[in-house]
Structures are given as C-alpha cells and as structure tokens.
Design a protein around this nucleic acid. Structure first.
Lengths: 205, 205
DNA sequence: GGCCCAACATATCGGGCTGATATATCGAAC
DNA sequence: GTTCGATATATCAGCCCGATATGTTGGGCC
C-alpha cells in the first residue's frame, strides 16, 4: 500500500525520496509513518514497473520538462529555489508516468480496507470521481460494521470477564461506532450535492 | 509482540497452536488477528529460547505434571475433557516455563506503545501489579498526547486545505482525544481504589 | 459400509515492512 | 577548520501476513 501513497504524492509534484517522506508525513500524519527501508525499495520497484521515472538526478542534472501536469506554484517555486551554483547532491527526483496514473487508479480500487489503507485512500480522494468515493466509503462502513458485530459477539460469548479485557472491548466498540458515524457524515457530505459549506442548497443546519 | 500474546494466553492454560489462535481472537478480538504464518514460527522460536515447552504431543502422549502453577478450574476441566479413548491427533500442546514467565514480564515492560501493543498489554493487565499498570497507562497517555500534538501541528501548518485530508486529520484528533479520555478513566479506576466498581462515568457522547 | 465435506492441525514460502546501520554531502555554528 | 546536525540514499536481518500444502478427524448421508 506504500505504492499508493507514493503515487498519490507524486501526482501532485515531482519529489525525491527524502522529500517524499516528509510530504507523506504531512499529509497522512501519524497514520502512516513510512520508513526509508520500505520507501526506497518501493521507489525502485515502481521505477522498474514503469510507474515512475527519474526526472532529475545526480549533481547538476539538466532540468527536463518544467511541468508534468499542473504544478502548484509552491512546487515550482521550490524547484527554482533549488538551483545553487553547485548542483544538488546525489538526488533522484521522481515523477509519475501515465502508467503510474493507471496504477494509482487500480490501487485506489484495491479491496484492502484497514485503517491505514483507508486513510491513505481518503487522503487522495481528490483524484477520484464521486461514484468511486462513495464506493470506497460504503465499503469501509461495511467492514466497520463487521468489526462491530464481531466484537459484540466476543463480548456476549464471554464467560470469564476480566475487567481489562472488557474495557478493551467496550472501548473498541465505542471507537468503531464513532468511526461509523464519521463515515456516515462523509457519505452525507458526498451525496448532499454541491457545496454545503457555502450556500446550503438542500440541507438544513 | 506476538510472543507477548502467546505467553499471556499460555499463562492461563496449556494449549496447542490452533486453540491458541482461537483464544487470542477471543481475548483481543479484531485488535490482533494473528496468522498461522506468524504463530507457528513464533512458537518454535519461543520453544528454542526455552520460554515454552511441549507439554503433550503426538497421538496418545502421556500426560505430564497436571499443573504448572494454579490453573483455573476451567482449564483443568478442559484438560481432563481432552482424553478420548483414541489419542489426540498430531498436536503439540505448549506450556509456559518459568523462563517464559520472566520473558512475559520483560515484554510487558517493552516500550512499544502502538495501538496493537498497548491493546495486548492491557488484555494481560491482570498479571501485573498496580504500579506496573499505572506506568503503562501513563506511558500510553503520553504517546497519545504526542500524537495529538503532532496532528495539530500538521493541521496548523497546512497551506493547501484539501477537505478530505482535513477530515482525516480532524477525525484523527477526535479519536485520539477519545482514547486519551478513556485512558484517563482507566487511570482513575486504578488510583481511585476500591469504592467505585461500576460505571462511574456518564460517558459524553 | 462407503463417501464426502467441513473443521481441525501443523508447517513453509514469497514478498513486503520495520528498525538499525552504513555512507556521504552540505550548511552553519564555534 | 572542524564538529555537528540535517539532508540523502541504500542495504540488511528479522518478523509478519496471506497463500498454499498436507494431512487427520468426525459427522451427515444414502
């Protein structure tokens, strides 16, 4: 699933591994603390597969095509800032390829649905159309409901009631219900069409 | 951390791998879905280290010492139930050793503090004395506070505000605060001794 | 009886992830 | 001018997961 994160970030701007990790941390926060030990191999893998390419590399590499898609002004500024008289260090700046964009769409559709995977997908929802978003949200809700059911069954079937185990399960139930309610709100926001932070076209409150 | 789970379960009763997994699922619920691919190697590892021993094995093994410490009547009953005229199948029933008990204490003190590790430790709190429990709870609270702080900083430093990323972070903040409150209640229950046995908290939302 | 199927039971393997470690460059402080 | 911390890439051991293999046991069914 780290590949999803890499492609999602690279879709916005070309970056090298080290920067990638920082952006990732910024976007996903504590949800995904990617380590270098998985980041670099993943980048190598993706390059082998043709999902990303090295856009700029080594000391004083010739800057290739200025844009791959529309860069935010920030990224462009950053790129120009990075141009000291002495070339950059040993960096490999990666960019996403058309094949990579395809791969990104595939990865978004991947059935993996744990907290981490879902968090990543949500972070890149802006690249999806509404039906896809709704599909992912519904699937997440379904698996949360499954989890809720399973925990409840475990609580019910419990003979020896250790207070700590009980506390653990009750908290799990509570947290899961919170998550479900949250997903519900996201779905509502998605279906209650158009902008709802501006003029409330359809809903109250 | 799977070793902690194994030892914690084995401390209660001698079991073979398959049963162990079921017990684990029951105690930890969806928090720790241990797979056989990690369970059996872990058992082999623990046996190599002398933390567990094979108490009974293969078809019609002679039943060794009836008790390793005080067994709950349930476990004893279970053990006697397991004695059909035709010996059991190819099973390896494991039991914890004194070295294993020591290892269990070490593992409880381990600094790992993610949701999974903490959940496991909490599930085995009954084996700890109160100071240890409080230490673990305080540590967990501290790391949750760190996480909260980090997420808040990320939200504040955010220039481009993607609504989905924002939703993700806000939900993370909310969940973390919930967790902190929960830990707070556990600490209170631990320090506010005796007296309050039931629901003393009118849970907010 | 004879048959099949689901659950029981153990084990291994590939591939991916984490944490530790190695290596080297750059900027800035001292 | 050198020490130090941030930047930057990479590899390695060890562990975990999911898939897969291999067999056993018990029960339902005709």
């Amino acid at each position: 699933m780290i590949e999803l994160a890499i492609l999602g970030i690279l879709k916005e701007s070309n970056l090298h591994g080290y920067e990638l990790k920082k952006h990732l941390r910024k976007v996903l926060g504590p949800l995904s603390n990617v380590s270098f030990g998985s980041l670099y191999p993943a980048l190598a893998r993706l390059e082998r597969e043709g999902a990303v390419t090295i856009v700029e590399s080594g000391p004083d590499a010739a800057p290739p095509m200025p844009m791959t898609g529309s860069l935010t002004g920030e990224a462009a500024a950053f790129r120009s800032r990075r141009r000291p008289t002495r070339g950059p260090r040993n960096r490999k700046v990666y960019g996403i390829t058309p094949a990579g964009e395809t791969r990104l769409v595939e990865l978004m559709a991947d059935p993996a649905d744990d907290e981490r995977s879902f968090g990543m997908k949500l972070a890149f929802f802006r690249w999806c159309d509404r039906p896809t978003r709704l599909r992912l949200l519904e699937r997440r809700r379904a698996s949360l409901l499954d989890r809720l059911e399973e925990t409840r069954k475990a609580v019910a079937a419990r003979d020896q009631d250790d207070p700590y185990v009980r506390a653990l399960m009750e908290h799990d139930t509570e947290s899961t219900m919170n998550d479900i309610a949250w997903i519900g709100r996201l779905i509502a926001r998605e279906t209650g069409d158009e902008g709802l932070d501006k003029e409330t076209t359809g809903g109250h409150r």
